[in-house]
Nucleic acid binder design. Structure first.
Length: 464
RNA sequence: GGCCCCGUCGUCUAGUGGCCUAGGACGCAGCCCUCUCAAGGCUGAGAUCGCGGGUUCGAAUCCCGCCGGGGCUACCA
């Protein structure tokens, strides 16, 4: 294959639960590579796990990747020259290829039960030797059984391949036992379906998570046995680690659900930016990158070999940077879905004050919910009551916008003889029921005038 | 257990034998600004470069051993 031929890469997530952060990360690196080489990025659905697959999970994958802007060129939903792109629809292919291997004497039927296999494994452990399948069904198959799986007859030997991240890799094939390629439910295993599809779909490079590094020799032996062309190279990307240092998994780490990132108000561009920096670095001090800049700067030589812990604090910072970089109009547009109770113009007036205060869009709710929620009137003492009265007076004949309100309030503060803190904090409490809010003139101006004045007056009345 | 990958501030990282009294970012602390919270500005603390041996005039950088973490070792992917 000539170097100039366009690359073809893919991600192959399995629809067995929510869309996972790791899928986004792998997809990102695939997209970066495909775009910088003018190649094709394919989405293939790895749905060979009958037990756990659900069609709605597949939708979740589509939604999340689209949200992130990591769109694909070929996939189950948009077709392409190598259809179908769902493994459950390619069963005939795997069965034919497995039959071919059996016919060539490179695979065989295995009638062993899980209990028998378990016993073999236990025995090996007892004798403290590395477990490899005994090849009982190759040499001396049991009689009269009908349920079988298909095992690959591992040829062994040295297995070498090039990893774009780690360089030349070597594995000893003699250490690998015969493994299952077709399960007894007639579905292929990942180890089998993945290399078959990669070859048939003409993938030139395989970019995936590091958990697949040890799987590569299995797949390479299969590729050779099937007479396929090997991919030019692999790239095994560092794992995203949880706080405890283990691989982020669906079961143990529900926070790796991509839908949650959207719900909390992380911006897709910011998440992409953070993900790119997790495990890769540009070699410069630049931290903020557009996807286009990433396409230009990314190289496998600069990807990290060790797993990286996911750091929410840094993500929050990056997300805040993106929020602050938005125009007021754009920020209002993005916040809108999080605060459907707030009308358009009120939101627009709130945005300048919100902008520097948000790490996540959903935090707008904390600042604005007093607009649609009536706070419990706090008890005020005889000292602050007159100041609340002064505030009402100062503000009630003024144009209902932050600036004039601020000016009026400043005057009242000066006349009150106390500091801004003493004057404003009780107002904030009365109006919002909270210790923290937007600057007081925004807090007041965003509320309808009658509502603001009502809440203030009510606090005074509560004393009488 | 076997095989593989990895090991620099709390975290993400720069670093490929002298430019390293180990740089940056997030976070953290203090100060400034300030009506709260942020944002912003300034300053600062924070890494005996996992440990022990070598090699070398000189090692975070090369070699060996050990320790530690992770991954794979499934009829999950």
């Amino acid at each position: 294959m000539a170097v100039s031929d366009p690359v073809r890469v893919r991600i192959a997530p399995s629809p067995t639960g929510f869309a996972h952060l790791g899928t986004a990360s792998t997809a990102l690196y695939n997209v970066l590579f495909a775009r910088q080489r003018g190649g094709t990025f394919t989405l293939r659905i790895d749905d060979t796990d009958m037990e756990r697959n659900r069609p709605e999970y597949e939708q979740l994958i589509y939604e999340s990747l689209r949200w992130l802007g990591l769109d694909w060129d070929e996939g189950p939903d948009k077709g392409g020259p190598y259809e179908p792109y769902r493994q459950s629809e390619r069963l005939d292919t795997y069965r034919e290829e497995a039959a071919r291997l059996i016919k060539d004497g490179r695979a065989y039927r295995c009638y062993c039960t899980t209990e028998e296999l378990e016993a073999e494994r236990k025995q090996a452990q007892l004798e403290k030797r590395a477990y490899k399948y005994s090849r009982r069904c190759l040499n001396n198959p049991p009689e009269g059984r009908t349920v079988f799986a298909v095992r690959f007859k591992v040829p062994g030997g040295d297995i070498k391949f090039r990893d774009m991240v780690r360089g030349e890799m070597h594995f000893d094939g003699d250490l690998i036992g015969d493994f299952i390629i077709i399960k007894s439910d007639t579905y292929p295993t990942y180890q089998f379906a993945s290399p078959v599809d990669d070859a048939l779909m003409k993938m030139t490079h395989v970019i995936r998570g590091e958990e697949h590094l040890s799987n590569t020799p299995y797949q390479l032996m299969l590729i050779d046995a099937l007479g396929y062309e090997r991919p030019e190279a692999y790239a095994h990307m560092p794992l995203i680690l949880a706080q405890d240092g283990s691989k982020l998994s669906k079961r143990k780490h529900p926070e790796s659900n991509l839908a949650l990132f959207r719900e909390q108000g992380y911006m897709p561009e910011a998440l992409i930016n953070y993900l790119a920096l997790l495990g890769w670095n540009p070699g410069t001090e630049q931290e903020i990158f557009t996807i286009e800049q990433l396409v230009g700067a990314f190289t496998f030589e600069r990807v990290q070999h060790a797993g990286a812990r996911f750091d929410w604090e840094k993500l929050n910072w990056i997300n805040g940077e993106y929020i602050r970089a938005l125009s007021d109009e754009e920020l209002a547009r993005r916040i809108k879905p999080f605060v459907p109770q707030v009308d358009e113009s009120t939101l627009q007036r709130a945005v300048p004050a919100l902008k520097t205060r948000l790490h996540k869009l959903a935090q707008a709710v904390d600042y604005l919910d007093y607009l649609w929620t009536d706070p419990h009137p706090p008890a005020i003492d005889g000292e602050v009551a007159p100041r609340v009265g002064m505030a009402i007076e100062a503000v009630q004949h003024v144009e209902w916008e932050p600036e004039p309100i601020e000016a009026a309030l400043e005057k009242a503060v000066a006349e009150s003889g106390v500091g801004k803190g003493k004057f404003y904090n009780p107002l904030r409490d009365i109006l919002t029921g909270k210790r923290v809010s937007l600057p007081i003139h925004f807090t007041i101006a965003l509320l309808p005038k009658d509502v603001a004045l009502f809440r203030l007056q009510r606090a005074i009345n509560a004393r009488d």
